[in-house]
Design a protein around this nucleic acid. Sequence first.
DNA 1: CAGGATCCGTAGGGATACTG
DNA 2: CAGTATCCCTACGGATCCTG
Lengths: 140, 140
Amino acid sequence: MGANDINGNPGGATSGEEERSARFPSRDVLNRIGDRWSIRIMRILQERGSVRYTELERAIPGISRKMLTQTLRAIERDGMIVRTTHAEIPPRVDYTATELGIASLGPIDVLCEWSEAYMDEVREARRAYDERHHGSSGTR
Amino acid sequence: MGANDINGNPGGATSGEEERSARFPSRDVLNRIGDRWSIRIMRILQERGSVRYTELERAIPGISRKMLTQTLRAIERDGMIVRTTHAEIPPRVDYTATELGIASLGPIDVLCEWSEAYMDEVREARRAYDERHHGSSGTR
DNA sequence: CAGGATCCGTAGGGATACTG
DNA sequence: CAGTATCCCTACGGATCCTG
């Protein structure tokens, strides 16, 4: 038995998260934006209202159960969503976006729209850069 | 065996980056927001105009040279900054934000302002969550 | 059904020594 | 001065098996 598995990630808060954000206030919120799944989950909750666990799993191809649960816990902890368990058999759990969660998508959409608008410009810059530096990887 | 260091990160583009972004268009831009240093660098360039390498290093406490260089290369490749080398001795390199780079800070500021505005609400949500779940880590 | 626990590979990132 | 190369440790994230 690998008694020394220090992996404590299921806790939700990655160790030292809040400590680092002391230097740059909005860091921990930015982190949620950076990770692959938070936004996708929030968007689905925004569209469909109340969504079950398995429904989310099917709606997001490529996500693992671990990541789904972990991300859900994290954004629940941040007050972005609410988790409701119905004591039935089989069990049923619904996730719903809070007011705060919905509101957070506003500024995020602004950012996404900007990046889509300037995407071409960025891609062109990359192409040019790659070519300038004995263009290896880029050509596609 | 030291020969097998597969770390190829100095390339700038992390392997598979553009591949993943096929699923979610603005992903790669979001990634720049997610990482710890890009925004800080861009802010400094925005404020001071033209900045040298060491000046950046001193202006951003806690950053390693590896990360500084790597981040600079990445945002240069994206067309956010321009790198100018002066062939002198000792060598001198200046970094300057482009129009595109400055523009990108707009939507980002929107997001940062939002997150600072709702920070308290988020912190409170976290506190409540931690307490609800036999509150261990949070109290500080 | 909705997860928790565990195992493991790999990318991210710091420290430092070296170079043009 | 402005990086590059190397070493190493950790966190992230997927796959899988188990449980209430």
